[in-house]
Amino acid sequence: MVPVVMVSSTTGAAGDSGAQGRQLLDQLRVADPLPIRGYSHRRFLPEWAPHRGACDTRETVLARDGRGVRRDSRCRVVKGSWYSPYDGKWLKSEKEIDVDHVVPLSYAWRSGASKWSQARRRAFANDLTRPELVVVSHSVNIAKGGQGPQSWRPPRRAYWCRYATKWITVKHHYRLFVTRKEKVALLNMLRTC
Rank of each mutant, 00 (worst) to 15 (best):
K183M: 11
P50E: 11
R122V: 07
R122I: 11
K79E: 15
T165P: 02
T179V: 07
A123Q: 15
S106A: 15
R37E: 15
S9W: 03
E132W: 02
N126T: 08
Y159L: 03
K92Y: 14
L105K: 10
K144S: 08
A185L: 04
S17M: 14
K166I: 01
V170P: 00
V136G: 00
V170T: 03
W167M: 03
L62T: 00
H41V: 08
A143H: 04
F44K: 03
Y83V: 00
S151F: 11
C161T: 09
S111M: 08
K92Q: 12
G21P: 01
H172Q: 09
R43S: 13
Q147P: 01
W167N: 04
R110V: 07
I142F: 05
T11V: 11
Q118P: 10
V103A: 01
M6P: 04
V5F: 01
H101K: 05
F177R: 09
R42N: 14
L62C: 03
R70V: 13
I36G: 09
L28E: 04
S84W: 00
R175L: 11
R70C: 06
H172R: 12
P33D: 11
W90D: 05
T169G: 01
V7G: 02
G12W: 07
L186D: 02
E182H: 03
R52T: 12
A143T: 06
G88R: 05
R156P: 05
F124N: 10
F177N: 05
R64S: 12
Y83N: 00
S9F: 01
